[in-house]
């Protein structure tokens, strides 16, 4: 298991190098000059001397390959550079905003799990019942509503009209409710369907019949055997979404004025703040790799067959 984890972590390195190359390439393919973007964002009409000075300050006057190698060397030392815009170290800016984003992502994942596991499971074992129809309705709704619109609707009803939750901001648990719901609804839609399908599939398996003939109590069969195996695809989906949640909260952060790093990143794109964009892409790549690894480990714990299969390959 130790070597397995090590192997997976080693795989991060080439992915990182590729990610740096890709961001680098994309930023330099864009027709906009970061120095010019900086100055025009400050509402000043740049003179040629100012542009030259800014380009020099940002290191943009060096040849491309030198810039690329320099940025790799720096990143290896965990130095993500200084933001063009704020003049502060990018890593400080990102870590300052990270807790808010993590809080929001976790809040919505927990909410999604708390709702979709019982709902999907019940919808599966009680096919075509009222709860199954309800889950279907919720899934259609959750999968098709755009999150910014849902956000506005929630604010309008629960905040402006009913005055139950604050419109925007961060601080108390009340602040967390509406943004979490907004983020969680599409996940609930997805996981409920996934779990329901998986439960239905498992109910057809011969082991259920065996268990029933052995006289094991129905509750035990469902809770201990069916749910445990059926939940596996959902955990995979959850892992894929963990990375996506941490990097994809941008719209929700904007709608609810949530001071996370998604908002910060969007501004960086408009201002061509290259070090910030680079840091974000690397972070996102790292998050996806790590969350996939965690998911694999959890899977191994829940369903020992997976780790046994892995053992056979080794």
């Amino acid at each position: 298991m130790g070597t397995y984890i090590l192997k997976r972590i080693m795989a991060i390195i080439p992915i990182f190098l590729l990610a740096i190359l890709l961001t680098f390439g994309m930023i330099h393919l864009s027709p906009v000059d970061p120095a010019e973007a900086y100055l025009s964002a400050a509402h000043i009409q740049p003179t040629d001397e100012m542009l030259a000075q800014k380009r020099h300050e940002f290191g943009l006057d060096q040849p491309l390959h030198v810039q690329y190698v320099n940025s790799i060397i720096k990143i290896c030392q965990f130095d993500f550079g200084i933001s063009y815009l704020s003049n502060k170290p990018v890593w400080d800016e990102v870590t300052y905003r990270m807790p808010a984003t993590i809080q929001l992502a976790l809040g919505s994942i927990i909410l999604a799990v708390l709702v979709s596991v019982p709902l999907g499971f019940l919808a599966g074992i009680k096919k075509n019942s009222g709860i199954d129809h309800f889950s279907r309705l919720l899934s259609f709704f959750g999968a098709s509503i755009p999150s910014f619109w849902l956000g506005y609707l929630l604010i309008f009803f629960f905040s402006v009209k009913l005055d139950l939750f604050p419109v925007e901001g961060i601080g108390t648990w009340q602040h967390l409710v509406l943004p979490s719901v907004t983020l969680a609804l599409p996940l609930i839609a997805l996981y409920t369907r996934l779990l329901r399908a998986s439960v239905l599939e498992n109910l057809q398996e011969p082991y259920i019949l065996f268990a029933r003939t052995r006289g094991i109590h129905e509750k035990v069969i469902m809770g201990k055997h069916v749910l445990r195996i059926a939940i596996s695809p959902m955990i995979t989906g959850l892992g894929m979404n963990l990375g996506k949640l941490l990097t994809g909260t941008i719209i929700v952060e904007a709608v609810f004025s949530w001071p996370g790093f998604g908002r910060y990143f969007i501004e960086a794109i408009f201002n061509r703040d290259v070090p910030v964009i680079q840091c974000y892409v690397l972070l996102a790549a790292g998050l996806f790799i790590i969350s996939n690894l965690i998911v694999d480990l959890i899977q191994m714990c829940i369903d020992p067959r997976i780790s046994r299969k892995g053992g056979q390959h080794q």
Partner: peptide, 14 residues
């Protein structure tokens, strides 16, 4: 700091 224009309006109405 409210980055979204519609949210500003909703916060104002509230």
């Amino acid at each position: 700091i409210i980055p979204d224009a519609e949210t500003r309006v909703l916060a104002f109405e509230k």
